[in-house]
């Protein structure tokens, strides 16, 4: 990969995404933080006061937030990646640069959002007196792993959506289903035992469980299921990247 040669391009495209958004609206970057924050408040209210969730070991708001932030990164990265190629059609037709740069910078811009929302998360950790442990540092490689997984899916779907522009609508539906099959708003213990294998093969479930284990449980993640996550992410990325590179040659013809 010649990505190092293009790091300035990656940097500027990422900044374009970030700057354009905060210039567009009055509250700008605050939306990035406020959005998941309000989502967390609403859901916390619903689940802890109306549905009465119990026995999570930690307060529900922070439990929810630890799942909601990675999920928001995942869902937003994919939906933005799917439209980035058609949006930059006039560039693709005129000038060559490795096209995965467009996808990578989309994800980096979303990673920036993720980092911003993390600040609120840390404040919440203080608020709820969650002890800080060395295991929390595992959060960084975990995010890297989730990044690779998200990148794999984004590369694949961006190509599909370039060919058939309604793939994005179809995938929005799938994403809704996926959200409920991932322990974002609930803990896996609430799920019927005979269906829990779903969480073993769903990498997003693996990641979110691992985030909670290292951040809130103050414990090591479940290495066995994380191993599956690494394997799936790696394989998916390799397959997706080679498909993307094969298809790249015709982007200028179909965009």
């Amino acid at each position: 990969m010649k990505l190092f040669a293009h790091w300035e391009l990656i940097k500027h495209l990422t900044m374009r995404e970030i700057k354009a958004r905060y210039k567009q609206s009055f509250l700008g970057l605050f939306w990035v933080i406020l959005n998941p924050f309000f989502q967390m408040l609403i859901m916390s209210f619903v689940f802890s006061h109306i549905m009465k969730v119990q026995n999570l070991g930690v307060p529900f708001p922070i439990f929810l937030y630890a799942g909601l932030l990675p999920w928001t990164f995942f869902a937003n990265s994919i939906s933005n990646s799917m439209s980035i190629l058609p949006e930059n059609g006039s560039l693709i037709k005129k000038i060559y640069f490795p096209r995965e740069i467009l996808i990578i910078s989309t994800l980096l811009a979303k990673a920036f959002d993720f980092a911003l929302s993390t600040i609120v998360f840390i404040l919440l950790m203080f608020w709820f007196h969650i002890p800080f442990t060395a295991y929390m540092l595992l959060f960084i490689p975990l995010f890297a792993l989730q990044f690779v997984f998200t990148l794999g899916i984004s590369l694949l779907l961006s190509v599909m959506n370039l060919l058939y522009r309604d793939v994005q609508y179809l995938f929005t539906l799938i994403l809704t289903l996926w959200f409920y099959l991932t322990p974002v708003i609930y803990s896996i213990d609430f799920f019927p035992e005979q269906y829990r294998w779903i969480f073993k093969i769903n990498p997003m479930a693996v990641f979110i469980n691992a985030y909670r284990e290292v951040l809130l449980g103050g414990d090591a993640p479940n290495w066995a299921s994380l191993g599956i996550g690494i394997l799936v992410s790696g394989l998916l990325f390799i397959v997706a990247f080679s498909i993307f590179k094969k298809a790249e040659g015709m982007f200028a013809d179909v965009v």
Partner: peptide
């Protein structure tokens, strides 16, 4: 090149 007659699934 291939001209796609359908732009959506």
């Amino acid at each position: 090149f291939f001209l796609q007659h359908q732009k959506t699934l």
